[in-house]
Design a protein around this nucleic acid. Sequence first.
DNA 1: TTTAATTTGAGAATCATTCGCAAAAATAAG
DNA 2: CTTATTTTTGCGAATGATTCTCAAATTAAA
Lengths: 142, 142
Amino acid sequence: MKKEEAIFRDFLKTKGLKLTKPRRIILNAVFSTHEHFNVDALYDIIRKRHKNVSRATIYRTMPLMIEAGLIKQALRCQAKDHYEHIFGHKSHLHFICDKCGKIVEKESKQVEKIIKDLAETEGFEIREFNVGAKGLCADCRS
Amino acid sequence: MKKEEAIFRDFLKTKGLKLTKPRRIILNAVFSTHEHFNVDALYDIIRKRHKNVSRATIYRTMPLMIEAGLIKQALRCQAKDHYEHIFGHKSHLHFICDKCGKIVEKESKQVEKIIKDLAETEGFEIREFNVGAKGLCADCRS
DNA sequence: TTTAATTTGAGAATCATTCGCAAAAATAAG
DNA sequence: CTTATTTTTGCGAATGATTCTCAAATTAAA
Ligand SMILES: [Mn+2]
Ligand SMILES: [Mn+2]
Ligand SMILES: [Zn+2]
Ligand SMILES: [Zn+2]
């Protein structure tokens, strides 16, 4: 059993929930990608594998995987929520190109540290960072 | 004429657009608040003043005011886009409480500087920062 | 196998935002 | 002050992502 599956199973158990077949299929789809994804993308991946899971179930599963600490809401693009892995990935910030939609990722321990400190002085408990900027990517500028 | 109106008028002129009555009403509503606002909130403010502007027009005006540099998309809350002033306000980051919805603002020149530098090395031109975190506010933790 | 609790799929319902279009307003010209 | 041209507006319909409802299916326990 893959590590993320163990994490998910354990999380579900603490909530009195079950690691069902559809949930396992969704989990595999989620961790088969290495980019940002949205519900429709997962739906397509699952269909291509000749599995069948309804969109409703995918929608219902995202918050569970977020609460389990496996994924997070990364950004909103084309009116859709996009997610990304947390498990096995470093935190980073996003530069989103308004013109072509491209997303550039950058790491910065510093930014995160500063935000953490600010949160602490405020008594705020951070669950999910959301750091980035919108604008024009290098290609679209020229 | 207030400064923001002059800015808006000048911006519109460069685009061959007109500073109409509805646009002026919306502008006043926008700058009558000093908090984050959404389209419905503006609609209510306008109605209370016995003016009448359709939601469609408000929706159409937001992108104009953004491009004019007067406001920005601040965050998304309860499935609605929320905006805030840029003109006359310092840039800041948002801590959003998942439980009660409260938003705490914090300034940090440092964070902005680091992000700017990262963008520069990437050749990315920033138009709008989006920095913050979601979690639990001090009140909701206890 | 029986039972009780949870989950699922299908489609309907929501709801913010966008669109289409004919009527109104703004601006320029005469 | 007209007339002509362009832009804008309001209305309501359309869109589309997400959520909800609920009966049937699955799961795990007894
Ligand atoms: Mn990312
Ligand atoms: Mn703010
Ligand atoms: Zn681009
Ligand atoms: Zn709170």
